[in-house]
Design a protein around this nucleic acid. Structure first.
Length: 412
DNA sequence: TATCCACTGGAATATGTGGTCG
DNA sequence: CGACCACATATTCCAGTGGATA
């Protein structure tokens, strides 16, 4: 019996479809590129850089254009002896406070052997360390804060960084900030003083339309796949899916990659439309499983409460908070956990709804009824169940008989 | 039109964890 | 060790909410 067999060669180089791939040239972003270059011109002239704020939905090229330009900027700066340009890129998606951002900046600038921890220091102590690091680098330092909106209400770092030099915290470095956000409303939430400085220059990235997407995907696909591998409608279909959803190139590329991978696993000689459709479902499922894994154990129990209630009596769905709370309470006791109070439970339900795992409908029954939400599971029960089974609670709870029960009732 | 229900969701406060520093 | 720091999660408290109904 043959265990291993070489699969059909589908990809020329699949890395070209990955998130971190840097293309040689950028498609469909000429205007933005030109404007952006102009904004960065002061850096080459050796004067104080302007702060730049970029906004636009996910996957419209903000990060790609930034990395592309900064790379060139660093290279081109080398021809001038009196100019040193350093760029620092930081994604703030896990950094929910100015403190965290400051710590992370210090750590990216420092040698791996001298990292500092995420808590423990007073805020000012961290800033002091940061100024010291920046001063040591000197020259022009451009700091890219991707997804700045994740920093939240505490924007002191956005206030401190641009002013560090004029406040005489640092002497040798000129700091420029490039903030990237997919939420334009974020700007309005900023402290006015911060808004003034951070948004000195701003650049909007509109979503791609289906044609632009198709062009982008075609360019990449030509490099990533071997010739004659993609059936004619594959790229347009990926482009169409991505365009109707968010106009995100990222999404289209993910789709292409997954479809190709699917064909390879199946040992199919070409990539077809069906692969794309299947890839789309697979990616969506993965997204949801990802977010379910991230939850705390009480989050899982909350989800399980909804699942259990649904299986026990689906004719009752959707459910009201009190009913779910009782179910949750029993599950918590059964697993030797202190059940949370009602308010905290309510928050978990709200979070699950935000993630798209639960569906929430507001109801108002008026006098005698009042205002409340009704919750219903919004992912396949099978998916929820198997994710929960893979988590720590297996063994503590009899999920198997629950699954059996669900099967009997044709839920799966 | 005033009332009333069943929550909702904001805010202040507490608890617990993981850290620094002298 | 004890004082102090940041932060995620919970708890406690409570002022709304808003449409069907008396």
């Amino acid at each position: 019996m043959t265990l291993f067999e070489r699969s059909e060669a589908i990809f020329e180089d699949e890395n070209i479809l990955h998130d971190d791939y840097q293309p040689e040239s950028l498609e469909e972003r000429d205007e933005e590129l030109e404007q952006y270059t102009a904004y960065l011109q002061p850096v080459i002239n050796g004067s104080q850089p302007r702060n730049i704020f970029l906004y636009g939905k996910t996957g419209v090229g903000k990060t790609a254009v930034t990395k592309y330009l900064l790379h060139h900027l660093e290279e081109d700066a080398k021809q001038y002896d009196d100019l040193t340009v350093t760029t620092v890129y930081l994604n703030c998606e896990d950094l929910t406070s100015s403190y965290r951002v400051a710590v992370e900046l210090v750590n990216t600038l420092r040698d791996p052997s001298e990292q500092i921890s995420r808590t423990g220091y007073p805020l000012n102590a961290v800033y002091e360390k940061l100024w010291a690091e920046l001063d040591q680098i000197g020259g022009t330092v451009l700091i890219v804060l991707d997804e700045v909106d994740y920093i939240g209400d505490d924007d002191s770092i956005l206030y401190q960084l641009p002013r560090a030099r004029s406040n005489e915290k640092i002497e040798h470095a000129r700091i420029g900030i490039i903030g990237i956000s997919n939420d334009f409303k974020y700007r309005e939430k900023l402290d006015p003083r911060v808004e003034d400085t951070l948004c000195e220059r701003e650049l909007h990235f509109p979503p791609y339309d289906a044609n632009e997407l198709q062009n982008i995907l075609e360019k990449r696909a030509a490099l990533a796949f071997k010739d004659e591998i993609l059936e004619g409608d594959v790229v347009p279909l990926c482009a169409a899916f991505a365009a109707q959803d968010k106009g995100s190139a990222r999404q289209g590329l993910d789709l292409l990659l997954e479809a190709g991978d699917l064909a390879r696993r199946r040992n199919d000689p070409v990539v077809t439309e069906d692969h794309v459709r299947e890839a789309k479902q697979l990616l969506e499922k993965q997204r949801i499983e990802e977010s379910m894994k991230e939850l705390t154990s009480h989050g899982h129990l909350t989800l399980l409460a909804v699942v259990t209630s649904t299986i026990a009596d689906s004719s009752q769905a959707p459910f009201q908070k009190q009913q779910l709370y009782e179910q949750y309470h029993d599950l918590a006791v059964a697993t030797n956990r202190d059940p949370l109070g009602g308010r905290a439970f309510h928050n978990h339900l709200a979070e699950l709804s935000m993630l798209g795992i639960l569906d929430r409908t507001k109801r108002n029954e008026g006098r005698g009824g009042g205002i409340y939400y009704e919750y219903e599971i919004d992912v396949p029960i099978d998916a929820a169940l198997s994710t929960l089974e893979n988590l720590h609670m297996s063994g503590e709870l009899d999920l198997e008989s629950l699954r059996q029960n669900a099967e009997d009732q044709d839920f799966l």
